[in-house]
Write a protein that binds this DNA or RNA. Structure first.
Length: 477
RNA sequence: CGGGGAGUAGCGCAGCUUGGUAGCGCGCUUGGUUCGGGACCAAGAGGGCGCAGGUUCAAAUCCUGUUUCCCCGACCA
């Protein structure tokens, strides 16, 4: 009893969400701070989650015809001159390489914040004929953006991501690509990460620097703030005209190629934490849990327990990611640890269970304890993991719906966000000035123009003009 | 970039007001007893106080500069 008081608990998420987030990151051992300012150390457990994310997505990219390749980390300054909007968007956060040893370089290089210029320059060389199209490339790498404020996984100076870059013959094709990838992303988010998302298009103000149109999927975090979880961009021929990416079509006519780019980053790990986590720590969706089931032997010193527990682990390891906790901590410590790390299922087995040829399964999502026969435990565990997956999504979906509102005026939007943060749907006339006013008066930004439109009012909620689109607004990370 | 907070043992903190050469809890090591919700006893190891200057006989403690981290805001791909 006094022992329990000494245990450092994580901060209550309802009292101090940012602190809770940091506590989870560190106590679940996902990441640590590094000696390099603004850059985190991704610990093996956090990297394990990322590896599973990459494995799922990489398979999807390949299924849809994409190939992985790798571009240099450094980009010569000369390429920076080329796409004006793009550069203006990135320039403030670009890090430069100016010296080699003590020698000042004649041409400076910048560390990629994203690789559109390199891919575009490459396409300009490689693409000659309609037969060279499409080019469907992707690279897994890290990028650098010199952020002023950072948060583990959510915003860092260097972060892990994937950037797809494609070139096509027509505007229809580059648009179709951007939309198809958006579906891959959002399906992955919903089915594997169990995070419900709203898909839509970014407004002119919020779109990617240099893009013709940007598509996004937005998720709602536990504290009611939105997280842009990934984006896809259709460039049309904008970059092609700057980089001179031209090909000869079937009619021997010179044409500009069209392009798309798309990316998701290790920010998804942050989304998982903030959507599913609770006051006991992390809650991992089974699909990306490095350990899906932890076997915890109870009274391991008693004859036969350790052996039996190991036997169960070996059986389960054939069908799922499974470990056994053979440390000499007390069982209660191990239980708490499993919870902190978000392991979806815990299997407790002790002398009493062995006597009855059973074990106790504990769900991380509900805390429910289930006594299950050892015979057929593989099937029981697998079925439970599937139930957990469905429940996590259903739970997050219900919360998102309960935190989605509509507003008829900017003061109403502000009032909602000040009291019950979430998504707010409101009609918009399409004018940039109105969007700016929302930002100034309610400190909210447009998250997206959802693909699934509904009319939640008759006129623009800012100016009262003709309502063009329903837009989802919120405060965002 | 603006406002606020903080850097003392691996982690969480106290000590700075009133300078005298660093302490507590957890963790760690060893031995023993334990083991179904963060066990207990005993014996140990470990830091010179973010960094750089300055004042002083003497600096975690005072002064100056600098850096890193956290929170809020601005900015943001």
């Amino acid at each position: 009893m006094p022992a329990e008081k000494r245990v450092e608990k994580i901060t209550d998420m309802n009292l101090d969400f940012p602190q809770w987030y940091t506590d989870v990151v560190r106590k679940a051992d996902l990441a640590d701070y590094s000696e390099t300012g603004g850059c985190i150390i991704v610990r093996p457990y956090g990297y394990g989650v990322w590896e599973l994310i990459t494995a799922h997505l990489d398979a999807k990219f390949k299924e849809t015809g994409h190939e992985n390749m790798y571009m240099p980390l450094l980009i010569p300054e000369s390429l920076l001159e080329m796409e004006k909007d793009h550069i203006e968007g990135f320039a403030p956060e670009v890090a430069w390489v100016t010296h080699a040893g003590n020698e000042e370089l004649t041409e400076r290089f910048y560390i990629r914040p994203t690789s559109e210029p390199l891919f575009s320059a490459h396409y300009a060389k490689r693409i000659q004929s309609w037969r060279d199209l499409p080019c469907l490339y992707n690279q897994w790498c890290t990028v650098m953006r010199w952020e002023k404020t950072t948060r583990p996984f959510l915003r860092g100076r260097e972060f892990m991501w994937q950037e797809g870059h494609t070139a096509h013959a027509t505007k229809e094709e580059s648009l179709a690509e951007a939309l198809m990838i958006l579906d891959i992303y959002s399906n992955f988010c919903e089915n594997v990460l169990c995070i419900p998302v709203i898909k839509g298009q970014k407004t002119e103000r919020e779109k990617f620097a240099g893009a013709m149109s940007t598509y996004t999927f937005e998720a709602l975090m536990h504290d009611g703030k939105a997280l842009q979880s990934g984006t896809t961009h259709d460039f049309g021929d904008k970059f092609a005209r700057v980089f001179n990416i031209q090909y000869t079509d079937k009619n021997n006519q010179l044409q500009y190629a069209t392009q798309s780019s798309w990316g998701v980053s290790s920010r998804l790990v942050g989304a998982i934490i903030m959507v599913h986590g609770d006051n006991n720590g992390l809650v991992l969706p089974p699909g990306v849990a490095p350990v899906q089931l932890m076997v915890v032997p109870v009274a391991a010193h008693k004859p036969g327990v350790r052996e039996k527990a190991e036997e169960i682990r070996a059986r389960l390891a054939k069908t799922l990611r499974c470990k056994i906790d053979n440390t000499d901590h007390a069982p209660g410590w191990k239980f708490a640890e499993c919870e902190m790390k978000g392991i979806p299922l815990r299997l407790e087995i002790g002398p009493k269970d062995i006597e009855n040829n059973q074990c106790v399964l504990v769900r991380r999502d509900t805390g429910e304890k289930i006594t299950a026969p050892l015979d057929g435990i593989e099937k029981t565990a697998t079925a439970l993991l599937e139930e957990i997956r469905l429940n996590l999504f259903a739970r997050a979906k219900a919360r998102q719906e309960s935190q989605t509102f509509t507003a008829q005026s900017v003061p109403e939007l502000k009032q909602i966000l000040d009291t019950t943060p979430g998504f707010v749907k409101a009609m918009w006339c399409g004018a940039d000035a109105c969007e700016v006013r929302v930002k100034e008066e309610a400190t909210a930004t447009s998250r997206c123009i959802p693909f699934t439109q509904e009319r939640v009012g008759e006129t623009c909620f800012v100016c009262g003009g003709t309502a063009e689109k329903m837009v989802v607004w919120s405060r965002a990370y």
